[in-house]
Amino acid sequence: MQANTLLIVEDDPDIRACLEEIMVSEGFEVLTAAHGREALQALQSAQTLPALILLDLTMPVMDGPQFLAELASGRWPEAWQRIPVLVLTAISEPFLAGGVAEVVRKPVDIGVLIDAVARHLPVSLS
């Protein structure tokens, strides 16, 4: 059984590296992107689509809300819209248009984050 893939979209290189390390140690395959535009490219070139997207909101080039709007725009494969999105943000009251499975607040507790990821992964029969 192939490991689940996660896509981490986060502009801060230190936070991105930490999240990657945590998820790798949890047994995930990890793709990373520094902003929404890179995330779209990562999805396009992915061998297998990620099972979940971890999304920061405040990012240069294409921020989180713009990325979500892109996914919902119909310009991209429909399968992308079915990927659950877990938003990771330091904004206390983020405005989200929809398409978000859950919001996890920064500074985030690793345990809370791992639980949230597990909650939104598609059930796999192993």
């Binding site: 801060d12 230190d14 936070i15 930490c18 999240l19 390390e21 945590i22 405040t58 330091a90 904004i91 206390s92 920064k106 500074p107 985030v108 507790d109 690793i110």
Partner: peptide, 18 residues
Amino acid sequence: ASHELKTPLTSLKLQIQL
């Protein structure tokens, strides 16, 4: 300001927990 302060704190907290 709170968003800006939380960003480095997030990184520090993740590092420590790791």
